[in-house]
Write a protein that binds this DNA or RNA. Structure first.
Length: 559
RNA sequence: GCGCUCGUAGCUCAGUGGAUAGAGCGCAGCCCUGCGGAGGCUGAGGUCGUGGGUUCGAGUCCCACCGAGCGCGCCA
């Protein structure tokens, strides 16, 4: 990327100045290249002179000129055309028009791979997200986690990581037992028994449908004498059916997991025992009050946490310890990313501590907490209560606004910002939406290419024979500049794990295209120029499609 | 009470310690004799919650306060 070349350019200029004895040996900051606020200033900039001025005992402007002086003859592969010093002490870099134009060929060459960066170097990373308990359909609030997790997975994969998407199925806890008890109650009701759904159960309508499925499939064979507990099949089959519903919900928003990990499987082998043994061995296990504790206070935590209850049953925390033991030590992921809702925030420090206690560098575990979604209808907050059975399913929302708009909106907000999701607004704006603005740009190009095919019959797909050096107009160059940002963005997101910049970028890219479209006609009598611009819009189409794909959105040929 | 997160335009939100704080929607106008008007252009609209501090420089970092969401179980 040019950005890296410019960074190297600055670094070598500074050290060259130091070797020449014109600059004291001051420490150079890590980040050197920034993006100027206004495009007039240039394509890239550095504030290094401002930052080093005091330590160097020079004014920022003197220092800027000194650094620029040492850059002479070392321009980055002809990409940088102009280096200027601007008060109060910036150095601005402008890319050459010829170099920019040439990048169109490079983008077409890369095709669908454009935007990829080698950051991950094939390292294995797992992204676990949503993992909603299989006791009900996927909820709108989960949509945020889905968009976040899946987009992260896509971006990391573009950044050169081997990515696995995982869904942890909580099939061992008390929640699925309550679920099974509710299901059994509904099932019995279908046979005329007067039973109530249990305390804390799941009163949602979908449970009746699930019970009917059971009846259709098993008849009355699952009935036990009144008052007796449900047979194990109810739990087994109920969870299976629920997972099928969940998988269909996920498919509706275009999320596909690579692995479904059963919590119960932690206990079927010796995995759980091994994880506990390792903790014990390393001295982080204490027994008191009849329970087994994780001595997290030894790791700077506020208090210890129970691993095994006095009843002998392991806690959810113990499951998670074993689960992460499996992720890191058995399956050998280099990095693990967990995407959790803010209601799990309290779980983060002890999970990190547990990983450290297992002897794993906690840096390898990233936990992304996203703030919960507040659902609204107009100004009214929709209170969701599982107990009252009031849930707004993701499916309902998808039917209203479509998967593309839902993803775009969910992923477009920083994870730690609170988010209001107005159901009415989402519906009303579904026609007047940045989503369509971006997709429209793609469809517009598709339309042009279709016409071009008639006009220039021998037009091959990738190479229209155009000479890109004819691309000199400002709107053309602005579009190219915008396209070249994608790899930088992919790298940035892979480092920060903050994919919310992607929708903003997509809109900017679309704006650059629409602006070009208004000012520069592609198909004209000037065949040479037409062919050059056809290359440009083909490249723009590739980059638009890639941007949309990174968000899991479709890039329609027509709308 | 303690902890985490947030507070930026009428609304929904961007803004790696740097130059005159941005986008979409909404609002007021303007632009179709040419490739898709789901488009383009112009304008109004801001004490960046409040008050201190650090810094050459703070929307961004630190402290206090106010307000909102979420946590603080031998629940998951």
């Amino acid at each position: 990327m040019v950005k890296d070349e410019i960074e190297a350019l600055i670094r070598s200029a500074v050290s060259s100045a130091q070797h020449a004895g014109e600059l004291p040996p001051v420490a150079v900051p890590d980040t050197l290249v920034e993006r100027p606020q206004k495009p007039d200033y240039g394509d890239y900039a550095t504030s290094v002179p401002l930052r080093l001025a005091r330590a160097a005992g020079m004014t920022p402007l003197e220092l800027a000129h000194l650094i620029v002086k040492h850059m002479d003859g070392a321009r980055a592969a002809g990409a940088v055309e102009d280096v200027t010093v601007a008060p109060p002490g910036f150095i601005n870099f402008r890319l050459s028009a010829a170099w920019l134009a040439a990048q169109v060929n490079a983008i077409l060459q890369e095709g669908d791979a454009f935007g990829n960066v080698p950051l991950g170097a094939g390292r294995q990373v797992q992204v676990e997200f949503v993992s909603a308990n299989p006791v009900g359909p996927i909820h709108v609030g989960n949509g945020r986690g889905l968009a976040l997790g899946d987009t992260l997975a896509r971006v990391l994969s573009a950044a050169g990581y081997e990515v696995q998407r995982e869904y942890l199925v909580n099939d061992a806890g008390t929640q699925t037992e309550t679920f099974a008890a509710t299901l059994y109650a509904r099932y019995q009701q279908l046979f005329g028994r007067h039973v109530e759904i249990p305390e804390g159960g799941y009163p949602g309508e979908y449970m009746i449908g699930l019970a009917q499925q059971l009846r259709d499939e098993f008849g009355d064979s699952l009935l036990r004498p009144e008052g007796e507990p449900y047979p194990p099949e109810v739990h087994e089959v109920g969870v299976q059916r629920m997972l099928e519903v969940i998988k269909r919900d996920l498919e509706a928003i275009g999320v596909r997991y690579d692995n479904w990990f059963s919590e119960r499987s932690l206990y079927s082998g010796d995995l759980y025992q091994k994880a506990m043994a390792l903790l014990r061995e390393r001295g982080y296990v204490a027994e008191r009050e009849g329970a087994v504790w994780f001595a997290s206070s030894a790791l700077g935590e506020e208090k210890d946490n129970v691993l095994v209850r006095s009843t002998g049953a392991p806690t959810y925390f113990a499951s998670d310890v074993a689960y992460h033991y499996d992720k890191f030590l058995l399956r050998g992921f280099d990095r693990v990313i967990n995407v959790w809702g803010a209601d799990h925030q309290g779980h983060v420090p002890r999970m990190k501590a547990a990983v450290a206690a297992l002897g794993i560098d906690p840096e390898r575990l990233s936990i992304i907490i996203y703030q919960l979604v507040t659902l609204k209808r107009g100004s009214e907050v929709v209170k969701l209560s599982k107990r009252a059975g009031e849930i707004v399913t993701l499916r309902e929302v998808l039917e209203e606004v479509g998967a593309d708009a839902a993803r775009f909106n969910f992923v477009g907000r920083a994870a730690d910002s609170h988010m209001d999701f107005d159901l009415e607004l989402a519906k009303r704006q579904s026609a007047e939406n940045p989503v369509y603005y971006v997709q429209y740009a793609h469809a517009r190009i598709a339309g042009i290419l279709l016409q071009a095919a008639e006009r220039f019959p021998v037009l091959p797909g990738k190479d229209s024979g155009g000479d890109v050096s004819l691309l000199r107009e400002e709107p053309e160059l602005a579009l190219i500049r915008k396209m070249l940002r994608l790899p930088e963005l992919v790298e940035q997101i892979a480092l920060t794990l903050e994919p919310h910049q992607l929708p903003y970028y997509a809109v900017e890219l679309a704006t650059a295209f629409h602006d070009f479209y208004e000012k520069c006609r592609v198909l004209t009598d000037d065949e040479a120029l037409s062919r050059a611009r056809l290359k440009l819009v083909s490249a723009a189409k590739v980059v638009l499609a890639r941007s949309l794909d990174l968000m899991g959105m479709s890039a329609p040929e027509r709308m």
